[in-house]
């Protein structure tokens, strides 16, 4: 009754839901209509991106003209961004923080998930329910105490403050637990009988088999952190530690009239995401569909 019950392999199975009616000739008209609607939605989705792309190549005086495509192409807008703001530093900070959060987050989540999915210990289900319950807590509830904690520890304006609080994920634990439950227990039981310690089972049996889940969680975590806004906004005070979203915010506030440069910065902001998405789509779609669970 839950989406969890769907085995990962079944999600990849041939699409049974796709209607066999599609092959009948009278469905061709309906198919064309579907394509027309989908193409219209795709156009609506892509137009803003296209505008962003073309505007990023326009000279400033063309901004308020109605032409969609630049009359004069100015690729030098891109290096100009780096001259006006330390965009390279923002890039580095964002990727550096997001990588650390991803590494720590996935590792600790995987270990916790293993404890919940495979090991037997007293109070396991109670603790797991506690974890589940906190998924409902809105971020703003914990934001103020965490801010106060960082102030007390004199960690404001540090990488540590950006990385450590973000690196422990109840959601990640939950997602990986679901994934590990779908791994046949016979595999690690066999390893245990052969005398493997829980650590060996974890590293040599569970982790390799859970790879698709780990990759999906890694993408979510990276993505969530690369775009993270609220927490960095209250943590970051000085320029050298700004991440991309915070740097972009100040760029927009100070140089807001230079739409062409803002769009160039935005294009550079989302290009790594588009590459990441195209490269990992398969894992991602499965991960999202697996992560949505009720009950």
């Amino acid at each position: 009754m839950t989406l969890t019950n769907v085995q990962p392999s079944r999600l990849a199975a041939p699409r049974r839901g796709a209607s066999p009616r599609a092959r009948k000739p009278w469905r061709i008209g309906a198919l064309i209509r579907s394509h027309l609607i989908l193409a219209f939605i795709a156009l609506t989705t892509l137009l803003p991106f296209a505008w962003m792309f073309f505007t990023s190549f326009k000279p400033l005086q063309e901004i308020d003209q109605l032409k969609f495509v630049p009359h004069e192409w100015h690729p030098e807008n891109y290096p100009a961004v780096f001259q006006q703001i330390p965009f390279g530093i923002y890039y580095f900070n964002s990727v550096f923080v997001a990588m650390w959060v991803t590494f720590l987050g996935v590792l600790t989540s995987a270990m916790a998930a293993y404890a919940f999915a495979r090991l037997r210990w007293r109070g396991r289900d109670t603790v797991f329910k506690l974890y589940l319950g906190t998924l409902m807590i809105p971020g703003i509830v914990t934001m103020i105490p965490n801010y106060a904690l960082m102030v007390k520890l004199h960690l404001l304006d540090s990488y540590t403050a950006l990385i450590v609080p973000a690196a422990f994920s109840a959601f990640g634990t939950f997602l990986l637990r679901q994934f590990m439950l779908s791994i046949p227990p016979a595999l690690d039981e066999a390893a245990s009988i052969d005398g493997a310690t829980p650590w060996q089972v974890f590293w040599n049996v569970i982790m390799p088999l859970a790879r698709p889940g780990l990759i999906a969680l890694a993408i979510f975590t990276f993505l969530g952190n690369y775009g993270s806004f609220y927490w960095p906004l209250i943590m970051i005070k000085s320029e050298h530690i700004r991440t991309l979203p915070i740097g972009m915010l100040y760029f927009d506030t100070i140089y807001g009239r230079q739409t062409n440069l803002l769009m160039a910065a935005s294009v550079m902001n989302i290009i790594p995401l588009i590459i990441l998405f195209v490269a990992t789509q398969k894992f991602l779609v499965k991960g999202i569909q697996l992560g949505a669970v009720k009950g």
Partner: peptide
């Protein structure tokens, strides 16, 4: 196995709530 995640969970989620 649970300890690292649980510590983080306690310090940054459970206690703050």
């Amino acid at each position: 196995f649970l300890l690292p995640n649980f510590l983080g969970f306690a310090v940054f989620t459970a206690i703050p709530v």
